[in-house]
Amino acid sequence: MSRPTPTLAIKVLRSSRRRRVNASWMISIIVLAAITLAAIFAPLVAPYDPDHIDFTAIYANPGWAHWLGADALGRDTLSRMIYGARTALLAPLVVVIASTFLGVVLGLVAGWRGGWLDAVIGRLLDVLLAFPALLIAIMAVALFGKGLVAPVIAMSIAYAPFVARLTRSLVASERARPYVAAYRVQGFAGGWIALRRVLPNVAPTVGAQSTLNFGYVLAELAGLSFLGLGVQAPTADWGAMINESQAGIVGGYFLPAIIPAVAVVIVVVAVNVIGEEVSDRIGGGTPT
């Protein structure tokens, strides 16, 4: 029966498997690397203290003093972007690692063991999939208060079913293949086959899905901060910066809001390009 599987969505997103011009992949890597390095070495790179208020620079236009201009409080946008990249990148990374681990464990157990265990895990995933990630994150805030810790834990749980569904279906289809039967007939233990032979065969596809998830998680966490439920002002964070600067838009001051918005889009695009390229390269020979 075709239930609404995330697998389908992934297939969809990966369907355009054509040879990309390598330029877009190089550019994506350079952009992500630059942002990551800037975030790690923020105190060395940022021209200003991100929280330094300067009333002479309110809504300053981009120029030598402020490369990307300044916001309603005269804070340097570039410095805030650099510091903001820390939460913007780190939080999704944690979510992706945690949800991949959780999802792979559940998916591997369900797909390899089958039977009642598969049915129970499948039902659990069905229920969790009915909760969109952002909704679980908002609910976590409602329960545990504002900030990033509760949403990150909530999103790790919310994204695990997508990874688990994919892993389960891949593992189940591998398990039905004669090469797995051949390992059994040769006398290998089931656990060894699952962990040492089947898991590596499904890993590239699962990895590609997780990479794509990074982009979504980043966008959703930024959205949460945009709603004022995630990272709290005055801490520099891309989503929170848009939230703070939203009022200025009506007054015609676009840049303080648009710059972090564009940054989110750029990172999401870059991550997607890399994810698809990596899955193309590693997964070239993977039977799916």
Partner: peptide
């Protein structure tokens, strides 16, 4: 790659 909040403000 354009999340709804970015779409909204643009």
């Amino acid at each position: 790659a354009i999340p709804p909040f970015v779409g909204s403000i643009v």
